Simulated assay, not measured.
Amino acid sequence: MTRLGPADLEAARDRLVPDVVADGLRVLFCGINPGLMTAATGHHFARPGNRFWPVLHRSGFTPRLLKPSEQHELPALGLGITNVVARATARADELSAQEYREGGRILTAKVERLRPRWLAVVGVTAYRTAFGERRAVIGPQERTIGDTRIWVLPNPSGLNAHWTAQTMAAAYAELRAAAHGVDGPS
């Protein structure tokens, strides 16, 4: 991969990154919004300090550690990626509460169309704001979108120091077990 400099990253601000989706996925992972590295590369969770890909593997969702550039392999595993807010920013705190709420409406319509078994929102604050669920905690939620169940996971960003890769992988593995309980073994 070509090394990206500050100007390359800044040029990616506000870019949209295509979802990695298909109809009827087992789990649709939903990030907060694309970071500048993701927007610059076109690959979700591309920032080197982001733990999404290692945690996805450690939790058993993928048979091997995938690189962000291999995100196209996810739908064959019954997995996909989208975001609450589509536009890229350097930090999630650049997003307004209105953007989160509008993102929640757009995400609801997307989930109704794609009908994944589970929507996994990676970031409890993003979920709370987008869906008006101020008391939501990590884990399965009571809310559903049609037949799609919702699970909130810890944000894999390297900035989320409250969770280690090991504790995060355990939380993701709980979702994996629940998803397999619905589908049967993969």
Rank of each mutant, 00 (worst) to 15 (best):
A90K: 11
T38D: 13
F61E: 00
A76E: 15
L159R: 14
W118R: 11
I138W: 04
S59Q: 05
E73T: 06
K67C: 01
E174L: 08
V121C: 10
G139K: 07
L66G: 06
L114T: 10
N50I: 00
L119I: 09
G35K: 01
F131D: 01
G132K: 06
L65N: 11
G146E: 03
Y172A: 03
E94S: 13
L119H: 02
H57L: 01
A171C: 06
R58P: 00
E112H: 09
T38E: 15
E133V: 09
P34W: 06
P54K: 11
P156K: 08
A120K: 12
W118Y: 15
G31C: 11
V121Y: 02
R64M: 04
A86S: 14
E142A: 14
R135K: 13
A88D: 07
T144E: 15
L74P: 12
D93E: 05
M168F: 00
P140E: 14
P154M: 09
A161H: 14
Q71C: 11
G80F: 07
G104A: 05
Y172V: 04
L56D: 03
V85Y: 02
A39N: 06
P116F: 09
T167L: 09
G80C: 12
A88L: 06
G132I: 08
L36T: 09
R105N: 10
